[in-house]
């Protein structure tokens, strides 16, 4: 697998009244074609800062101090505003933790799709409507719900809409920052299955950020463990689960109450 995105020695500082606070300390990693890379860690470890910096969504007082981000060889940090606008959503998109906050409460679902489609090229309203219907059906939402406002949908449906929006322009990379944290486990499972099905169908890479390493282990190809702005360990999902080499990774596993192993012979759903 070749690399879709490479991050090389990235440092992000937050400017404060005193000394700048370094949230991301010279980290390097790559995301390969068609790969799900998980990034796990506690709150405050810098994992969301990495996600925002990758899309250049970080705002002052956050500042990329040094390092390189290359997307298919192109230097993301030197993009002009016009290049950035064209690049976002068409090649890399993001699904945020809270779908309620990432969708506009005063616009219908269709309107939000139309807005994005128009920003990326001329499109007629009828075509936009067809495209919206197609995308909503793809994530399992009846097409006629496109005329609903976000508050008329459940949390799980809103997160599906956010996912459909992120997929519409068929990006090569989707950054998911705690996409299911606000949802209950059954809905979480449904949405993640959907992501995997679509990934299989469309072929894209995912940077999956969460604090739930058990969940991450279920869907990622590789996992990076972050602490205090550094990646302390990165490896295949199997290796992080069965044979973590860093003490911190082991302590993360120990801190999680996991269900006792399923007794033999007990039939479970699925």
């Amino acid at each position: 697998m070749s690399d879709l995105l490479t991050v090389d020695g990235l440092r992000v500082d937050y400017l404060t009244a005193g000394e700048p606070f370094t949230a991301v300390r010279d980290i390097s990693f790559e995301i390969r074609q068609n790969e799900i890379l998980g990034l796990a860690g506690e709150s405050g470890c810098g994992k969301s800062t990495v996600a925002y910096a990758l899309m250049r969504l970080h705002k002052p007082p956050a500042l990329v101090r040094k390092g390189h981000i290359r997307f298919e060889g192109r230097d993301v940090l030197s993009f002009t505003d016009t290049q950035l606008r064209a690049w976002r959503w068409s090649e890399v998109s993001m699904v945020f933790q809270s779908a309620m906050n990432s969708l506009s409460p005063v616009m219908t679902i269709f309107r939000q799709f139309y807005d994005m489609l128009r920003a990326h090229g001329p499109i007629t309203k009828a075509d936009a409507m067809d495209r919206t219907a197609e995308m909503l059906e793809m994530v399992g939402i009846p097409a006629d719900r496109m005329h609903a406002h976000p508050h008329q949908l459940s949390g799980g449906m809103r997160q599906r809409v956010a996912l459909a929006l992120a997929l519409t322009l068929q990006p090569k990379l989707i950054i998911m920052d705690e996409p299911t944290t606000a949802l209950d486990v059954v809905v979480q499972r449904e949405i993640l299955q959907e992501v995997l099905r679509l990934k299989y169908k469309l072929g894209f890479s995912v940077l999956f950020i969460t604090h739930d390493i058990a969940l991450m282990a279920q869907i990622s190809n590789r996992i990076g463990i972050m602490r205090a702005g550094e990646i302390v360990e990165i490896g295949t999902a199997a290796q992080i689960v069965t044979n973590p080499s860093h003490d911190y990774t082991r302590s993360l596993w120990d801190a999680m109450p996991l269900l006792a192993k399923r007794p033999e012979g007990v039939a479970h759903a699925v």
Binding site: V185, V186, R189, Q193, K201, I213, A217, Q218, A237, L258
Partner: peptide
């Protein structure tokens, strides 16, 4: 059935999810 569903949806790090959901969504 609901408890079984809830139980089955709890992330299990040793169980890999794949593109096929084996009927999970329709069961849910």
């Amino acid at each position: 059935d609901y408890t079984k569903l809830l139980r089955a949806a709890v992330p299990d790090p040793t169980l890999r999810l794949t593109g096929s959901d084996a009927g999970f969504a329709s069961l849910a």
